[in-house]
Design a binder for these strands. Structure first.
Lengths: 192, 192, 192, 192
DNA sequence: TATGAATGAGGATTCATTCAT
DNA sequence: TATGAATGAATCCTCATTCAT
């Protein structure tokens, strides 16, 4: 109903505010009124851009997920070797999760919580395909272990989420050096 | 054959109901009244066992976390080799997360969401110590990579959570065989 | 869900308050909060007795309609002559509409407005049956004009509603004498 | 062929839309925005023609009431006999209520509901005067029953409203024949 | 201990109205 | 005149918590 960018500025402010507040308090503990206040907008204005609260998070989830995969595959090309391609993608994912912490934490909360509705969840899922394709190629070339792609993902990509959470709580920070170590561990876990 | 005192039965029912409902709906979307109904108890009764809603999840979180680590380290002994010890613990953690899905999902939601208060979160954290100690021992023995324990954890243990979520959504199920594969990948990622 | 008389007093007060306020302001212009206040009850309490605002008026409509027809046919018996029976019923209806003005006005507003949902409207309709039966009997006996029952109703019963409205606005009041005149006009309009 | 000034066209569209929507949903359940949409006009535009929502219905009520009585008395002349005059008026009223159902239903809802303010209501009332005058003349001539004019109205004119509602709900339709019957019943109820 | 009716603060959403363009 | 984005007060309803029994 309201996907037109009437005033992109206001919509952006709402998105930003929602991400921050949901990160800090959770979906159900962030009132629309607080979102409006942080976005310096009237509560009623939210409903010019989003149908309701559910639609608000759904839209944000899909958009952030899209931005994430855009970033993840930004410099991936078909003609890279499997190893180069994987390194590219892994580094990008790590960079996104450790730099765009707010967005990444928001995705994490959505993915670990029943706040996103099923269609949006599905929508968000399809973005991984290029990575899965790459891994399959690696398997055909005999470079990557012939196991389920879920397993490959679990041991190579998924751990990055753990670093993100540690970093967000200021418990542990990936530095230039140990990010290289981490990448090596990731690659070793999937390479033949 | 249930010889627990009546009150313990009620408390148990409340805990069970809370876990299930929070898993399905999230903390803020599960009313106390629904918990009471599912536990076949009056809403007022909840407050005989728990100070308030926050206290309810806090207590459950701590208890489930304790049960989890109890299970994880149940057959761990100091005189096992590092490799044997790690295998023990890894298998137990996997078994818990894949068998006691409700409890494990509950922990996951608590850990990815701002519903648990900080003291309880700290309380839950200390349970990992034996594993960290074991890893440190492995490093001293030159068996385990000399990197941050967080890194070791991220690549060996954390991936299990991913399998749990896949299994819960019936997307992918670890079988007897590929759980062995998974364990190998975990060990390979941390061994020297 | 809540048809049990937990505290009939509170429910009665709510019904009374709703009727009065809806009469004065219309359905959509009477907030639940005002109903609660007039009934000296908390807003939340309304929802112990009624599912929502719509259910509130629906239930009241059905109940008042039932009370109305109960009253209308209270001393009607099958063995009365058609003329006696009609007089009985007509007088009762008139008495109800002119004495229980609040209830009658409430029914009138519901019947002239799209505030009642269709099922409740149907529910309310069936109460007229005994009168229609009587009229049919009268037609068979050759005492009452052989025209559509709707026509008989329109010219004999329906006019009473007009007197009710006049009375409510203090424009005109049926007295003991002219109520007799009115009855005569009603009977003359349908008798052969 | 519509040569009305553009602004008049807009006002007409607003009036039409309001009547239809208020008929279907009631005054308070028809948002200004919906009226605007149905009239293919911006919400803000409504306020160029009407001071506010109350003024909107007030004006429409008065206008429709005027149109109604215009129609009712359109071929009434002082030199007709009482009987001829009454027949004229009655037939016109019936024609209006059964043909211009939307307008007639709107009036009915306004007259049975507290949505019109008192001044407008008074304004609408005065239109009946010619009919009352005619009846009084009939009484003086000894043709019409010497009872309150309200009584005469209640039994001769008011029943038409009942037919209108039946027709609107497709329950009963006055045909050419029984409209004659109805008229006879009306006349019989007031004639001496 | 246990109940569950009652409370009332809080939150999502709607909508009459305004105002800058 | 006409627009429609923006406002924010008002409204329905939920739900954590209490308390009399």
């Amino acid at each position: 109903m309201n996907t037109l960018p009437k005033s992109q500025q206001k919509r952006d402010a709402l998105v930003k505010a929602t991400i921050r507040l949901v990160n800090n308090n959770g979906f159900h503990a962030t009132p629309m009124s607080k979102i409006a206040k942080m976005a310096e907008v009237s509560p009623g204005t939210i409903y010019l851009y989003f149908k309701n609260k559910q639609d608000l998070v759904n839209q944000i989830y899909i958009e952030v997920k899209a931005a994430f995969s855009e970033f993840a595959f930004k410099d991936y090309k078909e003609d890279l070797t499997v190893k180069e391609g994987f390194k590219n993608i892994w580094k990008n994912i790590a960079e996104f999760k450790l730099k765009e912490i707010e967005e990444a934490m928001f995705l994490s909360q959505c993915d670990n919580t029943p706040i996103i509705d099923e269609p949006s969840r599905q929508e968000g899922l399809k973005h991984l395909q290029p990575l899965l394709d790459l891994m399959e190629r690696g398997q055909k070339e005999g470079i990557i272990k012939p196991v389920s792609p879920y397993m490959l993902y679990a041991f190579s990509i998924y751990p990055i989420a753990f670093f993100m959470k540690l970093q967000e709580r200021a418990i542990f920070k990936l530095t230039r050096e140990n990010i290289e170590e981490a990448y090596e561990m990731a690659w070793n876990s999937i390479k033949v």
